[in-house]
Nucleic acid binder design. Structure first.
Length: 418
RNA sequence: GUGGGUGUAGCUCAGUUGGUUAGAGCACCAGAUUGUGGCUCUGGGGGCCAUGGGUUCAAAUCCCAUCACUCACCCCA
């Protein structure tokens, strides 16, 4: 038997109802915040990600689904959404239509990693990007937007963590300061950190290794080395968050893995999850548009993993949708009645009722069982007697009562009791 | 890529120091009403014990390999 590809998932009907409800909720909130959806292709030229995300990141260096198409073009299944959104923004010159563009998306993404709890090879994110402003109020709005979705979904106990990683003006000197601090102890750090020392020294700060953490305790912090502009931006962000009543924690060691981040970075985690406990990650990326060949354009965004949200929801027994139920199960006693059933169903559905009939020529008893299983409000029974008299027997399942109703009276009869 | 764990019915799992025909609960089907659900009772169907090899008089059980799933590392949503 052919099986699904490792790290992929079939979203079964019992779960897809919940997904659709969450997507509806997201769209509804996005609209209130005045964000509009942008859909991009599932694949892009590989170069977009190599340049946008950064060659040295894990995503680009070892996790992308990349292949050659028949024209020998190098194609990649998108591993994240920010680069494609900016590409589409530039390619379609959205900056010419409006100075600020507020965009959201809900999309499948692909990364070739080993799967584990909360990590899949095809997974889904929703996210938003505000493109065209460097205002810290936009950063705060972004965080508030994400938190609002989680609040309305009903998730509890989430942890919001923020930090600033500065901009090239203050970050480059800071990296040197940090390297100067680490260099004497470098041999005591884990092999991964030794590798990071040249590639991306700031990542050493959020290493989970015990020894590294201890060594890091005295390390200089970026938040103490911000330039005036970055400092003012960060201060204002905290003020706005405070004013909005958004609880946050500051973590000077929060460094996000993607190269394009500047100034604000943030992360939202849930203790209900395992090792992969981040349900949301985001930040400001004022340099990305330029990096991709466009005009210098400040922007901020976040991405949130839908599978992980669903895991938290399952843990906290949160359900957006109720168990589905049938309005009417149409039971037939014999062949004559069965032949009449489809037209009855069409008529009833046309009048707004959710209906089902028996397709298996089952006994009336088995049909009643089926009706009960599907939690039908009414069972309409059509048999020899009913056909002859042009009536239907209507059983009201919750009460266990049954009565004969003329066909002409049926719709008002049912509507009255829905 | 690397390491740990687990593979027995549709699902969740028992299965003794290797020993007759591999079990339970739930689910499913039928009956206890001639045209009637839930609750109860009775009966029934369903398993190449992941796959391949080995040890043994005898393997679901012990050994090896493979595969799958799963958790974790790296990193990320």
């Amino acid at each position: 038997m052919i099986k699904r590809i490792k790290g992929t998932h079939d979203l079964l009907p019992e779960d897809s109802r919940e997904w659709v409800a969450l997507e509806d909720l997201i769209r509804q909130i996005m609209d209130k915040y005045n964000f509009y959806e942008l859909r991009t292709p599932v694949f892009e030229n590989t170069e977009l990600f190599a340049r946008g995300i950064g060659q040295l990141t894990d995503i680009v260096s070892k996790e992308m689904y990349t292949f050659l198409d028949r024209g020998k073009k190098q194609i990649t299944l998108k591993p994240e959404m920010t680069a494609p959104i900016i590409r589409a923004y530039l390619e379609n010159k959205l900056y010419a239509k409006s100075q600020i563009n507020k965009i959201y998306y809900i999309a499948p993404l692909f990364r070739q990693e080993n799967p584990q709890a909360g990590r899949l090879r095809q997974f889904h994110q929703f996210g938003a990007e505000t493109i065209g402003t460097a205002a810290p109020e936009a950063d705060a709005e972004m965080i508030d937007l994400a938190m609002t979705v989680y609040d309305r979904f009903g998730l509890k106990g989430l942890q919001l963590t923020i930090n600033s990683v500065g901009d090239p003006q203050c970050r480059d000197p800071y990296k040197k300061t940090l390297q100067d601090y680490i260099r004497p102890h470098l041999h005591e750090y884990c092999p991964d950190c030794q590798r990071r020392f040249d590639e991306n020294p700031m990542r050493i700060l959020d290493c989970k290794n015990e020894a590294c953490r201890t060594l890091n305790q005295q390390a200089p912090k970026i938040v103490d080395n911000l330039c005036d502009d970055c400092q003012a931006h960060y201060d204002r962000l905290r003020d706005v968050l405070q004013a909005m009543g958004r609880q946050y924690e500051e973590d000077a060691y929060l460094v996000r893995g993607l190269d394009y981040y500047t100034r604000t970075v943030f992360e939202i985690t849930s203790p209900a999850l395992g090792a992969q406990n981040a349900i949301c990650g985001g930040g400001r990326y004022d340099l990305l548009a330029e990096e991709l060949g466009g005009p210098s354009t400040p922007a901020i965004g976040f991405a949130s993993g839908i599978e992980r949200l669903m895991m938290v929801a399952a843990e906290q027994v949160i359900r957006l949708v109720k168990e589905p139920r049938l309005d009417i199960f149409f039971a037939t006693v014999d062949d004559a009645a069965r032949h009449k059933a489809p037209e009855f169903l069409q008529w009833l559905r046309g009048n707004g009722f959710k209906c089902e009939m028996d397709f298996l020529q089952r006994s009336i008893k088995a049909q009643m069982r089926e009706a009960n299983r599907q939690n039908a409000r009414f069972v309409l029974i059509l048999g020899e007697q009913e056909l002859e008299d042009d009536v239907l027997s209507v059983k009201i399942m919750e009460q266990g009562q049954q009565q004969v109703v003329a066909r002409k009276e049926l719709i008002p009869f049912l509507n009255q009791r829905m």
